[in-house]
Design a protein around this nucleic acid. Structure first.
Lengths: 352, 352
DNA sequence: TTGAAAGCGCTACCAG
DNA sequence: CTGGTAGCGCTTTCAA
């Protein structure tokens, strides 16, 4: 805007600009309302009693100045960790993870706690750095899906009173609450179901394979084979650990091999979709049960080991809020249920 | 731990506890290192020169005290809005939104800016409240997927210098940058393609229907019909606005009607999946093109109007960072491309 | 290269 | 019911 062409109005205009340009503070509001800063504070904190008339004056002044309380300054108070909670997720594009994020967000929203989200992109290196950034913001609690195989770097922080809740996988070398799934039970049930339907050659495929969840799930699969008196020789285990290898191709090879399995248990949503891709166009597709339910599983008729990621997030958030309110108490480990949903793909009999 | 059984070691133990229990501050570190607070500050700010020896002393003291700089206090500085950026998402659990979130997160992570996420659950009422909470945290910029039909409540904040970037839909009654998709072009191309494949009775289905994106998409669909000399009488438009009505049932009814369409354009990912569900088991399923690509679209052979949600998020974040660095500049409206991916479902000829 | 002092916006503590 | 005062943890002047 040009000031040159403005005559008498110039001053007013400038004043307006100045008022608008710098953010009003509690003190500004207090001055305009003719009360003390503390009184304004009281109006916003809604704790002490303030006369209705004063409230009115303060709010009107605040509105004129476009005042907005600074919650950063508020939480600078001694020993007062903010209500804000930090969440470190693996990879944002994984439906399982964002189901968890959704659950956390809902629970916290109901409680009025802001949520700061950071991701590691599933790389262990970034984890500590990301945690540092969150802790520098003085989050009141840290929710995380551990990626690295050592969270001992958080031990100091825990002793300082910041609750840490591990989700999906337990933290390692760190005393922290954990919310995990009944992984073994899930794959055990699935594998047993395939056996009941007549399968003897059942494959387990996943990538990555050396994370906690997969170790558990593979175990459940092996246990089921063993329980049925079937050989557990790893012949049908496709346990990759290099995300650059397309699982789809690997599954395709598996299915074309001499002693191809007649059924597949896929260790997670990604593996399940990869298996589906590999099976496209096959005359006699193998039976398939995936871990993690997904949007179009019903349309595709895919049987899955299902669970509730949103509830998982909620549970984690609840636990965090609880710990923040009462830092004492024993470390908890919650296991959330998994269940088999039969949609056809897991009930196909073996065909040769 | 019991103190009773500890003899001489008790004091040391207690001291340790005290040290550990309260969070160390810059001043504590300064005292232990025998330097001034400012010097410690300098070490962490990495701006002024500090002698290597002093740096060493400070860092060692900091480590002993488990010191971690408080970024809240840092950003309390005069006029200095934090680097933190706020993002208001619409509906949780929508893959499209999470793609955007992922893009934002990646771009900001590369820049070292924390991200605060909040959601409105697609309810217009919550939007202002949520924005308030974010602004109270003094976010440096506000990214949002507008839900309500009026964002004028942010006008004051914008004048105060907080950039607002609207994503997917433009803001209403507010000067704000916007990143949107080429919605019309997308549905126009899809509809035209169906027409080329011989279809004359093409339906458009979506829910909700009165949001910006859908108004645009319906327009693209109508334009394509008109361009081809086909009637545009709304007979085949299923435009719902009540999320409690299952779109699946509606589509099923549509397909069973006398003059059933031979092709469907689904207005978003939800509508597309609903259409797929409704089409299950049909002898002659109609042709189908959905808006938004999805995970198993290739397995299902579903043609879609695709775009890149992650890039959308990145673009929005970049724009926000740009605006924060230089608040001047004209308001921008970016339209990101959409394109048709042919996978079979959209290329089916009409069958009666 | 280092230090002292004055805030940043807000709230707790104690008076009126 | 209301008002001063003294911080919260850090950074920014200005000096030394």
């Amino acid at each position: 805007m040009s000031h040159a062409v403005i005559g008498a109005g110039c001053r007013a205009h400038r004043w307006l600009r100045v008022t608008v340009q710098s953010r009003a503070t509690l003190a500004d509001v207090a001055k305009l309302a003719g009360v003390s800063a503390k009184t304004v504070s009281r109006v916003y904190a809604q704790r002490d009693r303030v006369s209705a008339e004063t409230v009115e004056r303060v709010l009107s002044a605040a509105k004129r100045l476009r005042f907005r309380p600074n919650s950063l300054a508020r939480s600078l108070r001694r020993g007062g960790p903010s209500k804000t909670i930090g969440f470190i997720m693996g990879e944002l594009l994984n439906p399982f993870y964002y189901g968890i994020a959704a659950g956390i967000e809902r629970e916290l929203a109901a409680h009025g706690s802001p949520l700061i989200v950071a991701t590691t992109d599933d790389s262990p290196d970034g984890e500590e750095h990301v945690a540092d950034a969150l802790l520098a913001q003085r989050v009141g609690a840290l929710l995380m899906i551990p990626v690295g195989d050592d969270q001992s770097y958080l031990e100091g922080e825990r002793q300082l009173g910041t609750p840490v809740i591990a989700i999906d996988r337990p933290a390692r070398n760190l005393v922290a609450d954990a919310i995990v799934l009944e992984n073994r039970t899930g794959t055990h049930t699935a594998t047993a179901s395939l056996i009941v339907h007549g399968h003897r050659d059942i494959a387990y495929v996943c990538n990555p394979a050396s994370v906690y969840t997969q170790l558990e799930r593979v175990q459940g699969y092996r246990d089921a084979l063993r329980d049925a008196g079937l050989p557990v020789d790893g012949r049908h285990e496709v346990l990759l650990d290099d995300m650059s290898i397309p699982l789809e191709d690997t599954v395709r090879e598996l299915l074309c091999a001499r002693e191809a399995p007649t059924a597949i248990v896929a260790g997670n949503n990604r593996a399940c979709v990869a298996a589906l891709r590999a099976m496209r166009g096959l005359r006699h597709p193998p039976a398939l049960i995936g871990f993690d339910d997904f949007d179009t599983a019903d349309v595709l008729g895919v049987s899955v080991i299902a669970h509730d990621p949103v509830e998982m997030g909620r549970a984690a958030a609840r636990l965090a809020l609880e710990r923040m309110a009462d830092p004492a108490g024993f470390t908890t480990r919650v296991e959330l249920p998994t269940w088999l949903i039969r949609r056809g793909s897991g009930e196909r009999p073996p065909e040769r």
